[in-house]
């Protein structure tokens, strides 16, 4: 298992490398001149030239990329063009916010998605199935930010059960954290929950028709046990792939949901950076996001191996 993990980790290096090349070359194409951005219309031509030289902007792109990558590998993603904010620090400060939002949303999506999918598969064409299917179809059509607005209107503005906006770090107060993260996470998790429910239902329906389910029942194992242990374990195999993809989707969705709840996460940082054309910040953000996605994929790969013995090296 450890060697598999190591091999998978090593396989990620080229991907991250490619992403870094893409990001760097892409942002190098941005129309704005960083020196103009920094100095604005103040400063003399000499000052512009000096800054350009100091920032190494006169070097060829390849040299700049190599320098950036060298620093990035050491955890230094550079400094914002717009102010003296350290990109690594800014990203790391925001990451827990977005991560906890995404993680809670993923938990909600996985728990409700699997529950709904299993329930629907167990009682096909019953009211539970109809409700779950209709819910899942709707869930995939509802924009997460709209759902967020509606949740705010109902649960924050009218009922005052949750704060309408903002985010409390878990270190500050776990209870307030939970309250602050609930509405955005529910808003964010809805469509993923729907997607997972659909996938689980379809996988469960497939698995429940398998001989080994009937065989387990024939051995007198209880329906509950057969469904929860035998069927679900196998049904999760195709669901895992969906999970991995959904977590990427959640991470992206968090960028928008953060705006609804005025949460200062990576999304707010990203939108600010894009509006300011703050190249180091954009580069750093993309790289860190891909890093997170890749780790999620790694985790799901491992989970896949645990659930599906055929995928394991013998």
């Amino acid at each position: 298992m450890f060697r598999l993990l190591l091999r998978r980790l090593l396989a990620l290096v080229p991907l991250l490398f490619l992403v870094s090349v893409l990001t760097f070359s892409f942002t190098a194409m941005l129309p704005s001149d960083p020196v103009d951005l920094i100095l604005g219309d103040t400063g003399t031509t000499e000052q512009h030239d000096m800054l350009r030289e100091r920032m190494g902007l006169n070097d060829p792109v390849v040299v700049r990329y190599a320098r950036w990558l060298g620093n990035a590998v050491q955890g230094d993603l550079g400094t914002s063009f717009f102010n003296s904010v350290d990109v690594t620090r800014a990203v790391m400060q925001r990451m827990p916010v977005t991560l906890s939002l995404t993680a809670v949303a993923a938990l909600i999506a996985i728990a409700t998605g699997i529950a709904a999918g299993v329930a629907a598969a167990l009682y096909p064409r019953s009211w539970i199935d109809r409700l779950a299917t209709i819910g899942a179809t709707f869930g995939q059509a509802v924009p997460n930010f709209w759902f967020g607005l509606i949740l705010v209107a109902i649960f924050a503005v009218n009922l005052h059960w949750f704060p309408a906006t903002g985010f409390t770090p878990i270190s500050q107060s776990p209870w307030d954290w939970l309250r602050s993260v609930t509405l955005p996470a529910v808003a964010l998790g809805l469509s993923s929950s729907a997607a997972i429910a659909r996938q689980v239902r379809s996988a469960m329906v497939g698995v429940l028709q398998m001989d080994y389910i009937r065989a387990a029942r024939a051995q007198g194992l209880s329906a509950r046990r057969v469904i929860l242990r035998h069927a679900l374990t196998n049904a999760m195999v195709p669901v895992i792939a969906v999970l991995s993809f959904q977590i990427t989707v959640l991470l992206g969705g968090a960028l928008i949901v953060e705006q609804v709840f005025a949460i200062n996460g990576l999304g707010t940082l990203a939108i600010t950076a894009v509006r300011q054309q703050d190249i180091p910040m954009i580069q750093g953000l993309v790289l860190v996001m891909v890093g997170m996605v890749v780790l999620v994929q790694l985790a799901t790969d491992i989970l896949y191996g645990l659930l599906n013995p055929k995928a394991r090296p013998s």
Binding site: F26, V249, A270, I271
Partner: peptide
């Protein structure tokens, strides 16, 4: 594909 879709869109819009 490994970059969240909306982030790709946002970066392209930056361009």
């Amino acid at each position: 594909v490994s970059i969240p879709g909306i982030m790709v869109a946002i970066v392209i819009i930056a361009l």
